[in-house]
Write a protein that binds this DNA or RNA. Structure first.
Lengths: 131, 131
DNA sequence: ATCGCGGCGTAATGTCGTAACATAAGCGTC
DNA sequence: GACGCTTATGTTACGACATTACGCCGCGAT
């Protein structure tokens, strides 16, 4: 388990659950797991998640309304992350592609579009589940 | 206004509102607009939306939990569509890029991942709003 | 005719996310 | 130390998005 020494208690609890999960967790699923730790309201989880997202330690999957821990140990940002989400087993693969990043960047530049955030999510079946 | 002759009443009503809107609409926003037409429950809207999505006449923006009419007259599918969503004015640009499509397809092929659906959404400011 | 199917209507419920308000701990400044 | 600032926290209530369950109707195919 990585250190994350600078996290607050709630943030650590939330990140810990995300890291132990084998599939994305909804905020409410996290909350349910943390009731025994004393958490009682969704906002406590959402606040922790916001910080974790800011720090790049977790990601939000928009198409699932759920969250995952960042796959790379201490990624702290990086270009543009894409997610491949298996609809059978729930596993999420995280990858990035510079060419894709560049193409989208070029498009934005041509259009004068100022990008603040990009989400890219592929739904389907992973190799194991596609059999 | 395009013909869409084969649509049911509810589907036509919903598509009509999406086409007239200048920004993505949530299902409940559509419902509110259609109360005077007799619609009363969310499900009536969601059912129509499901069909419109199937037919490729509308798209769902996952990062917004909202819907837009397809930008192209009678697109009926096409490769991989990306959306650029202006967070100021709400306008959505729809585009596609074969190279991006190819890169993602290649990644999936290498991983043995069977794709069912891909979402790509860029958030930011359009040219007009970035000034 | 009747069976199956697709669309429709309604009510209730489930899931996800936030507003508004209050409290407490840390920290620098005067 | 007293003050003001900032950040994290806790609690209640609410708003926003989506689905489940049930039943009816119309229509084409057998």
């Amino acid at each position: 388990m990585t250190a994350h020494a600078d996290l607050t208690r709630n943030q650590s609890l939330v990140l810990d659950r995300l890291e132990k999960a084998e599939a994305p967790l909804s905020a409410y699923a996290i909350l349910d797991q943390l009731r025994e730790e004393g958490l009682r309201a969704p906002l406590q989880v959402y606040r922790a998640l916001d910080k974790l997202l800011d720090m790049g330690l977790a990601h939000r999957l928009e198409s699932l309304n759920a969250f995952v821990a960042c796959a790379r140990p201490n990624c702290h940002a990086s270009g543009l992350i894409a997610f491949a989400i298996c609809e059978k087993c729930g596993q999420v693969a995280e990858f990035s592609d510079d060419i894709v990043h560049e193409r989208l960047h070029d498009w934005a530049h041509r259009e004068g579009f100022v990008v603040s955030r990009t989400t890219m999510e592929i739904r389907g079946s992973c190799r194991a589940c596609a059999a």
